[in-house]
Amino acid sequence: MIYMFKIGVVGDKDSVLAFKALGVDVFPVYDGVEARRIVDTIAQQKYGIIFITEQIASLIPETIERYDRELIPAIILIPSNQGTLNIGMRRINENVENAIGSNIL
């Protein structure tokens, strides 16, 4: 399966606008309902990676979890311009705990 995938960024407008200049598709959202709708819509399309700001991600944890087991898309959390909430780190640690049984890092 060789197909060109796109990259999307979901988050509040101030944080994600800068990505626009790099040729990445940007989807400004402000609340959880909208974010869930956008993520579900673009996951159906040919988006290989969806970056989503932690602020927005914290509103829709179950939507993000749903794509954890899929090969495509990869949903990756990024900090927003208000700094990081450490959700991304916590997800890594959760992975470790799930896989190994205790946090060795």
């Binding site: 399966m1 060789i2 197909y3 060109m4 995938f5 796109k6 990259i7 606008l17 800068a18 626009k20 200049a21 790099l22 040729g23 990445v24 290989g48 990676i49 090969l71 495509i72 990869a74």
Partner: peptide, 29 residues
């Protein structure tokens, strides 16, 4: 600000392949 960035010069696309690590399919981007 919006006007400045709204029409990007560059476009990034991804080429995703599957790789098999111990029967787990992982993406190679």
């Amino acid at each position: 600000l919006e006007e400045a960035v709204v029409y990007p010069k560059e476009s990034i696309t991804l080429d995703i392949k599957k790789k098999n690590i111990m029967s787990v399919n992982v993406p190679v981007m």
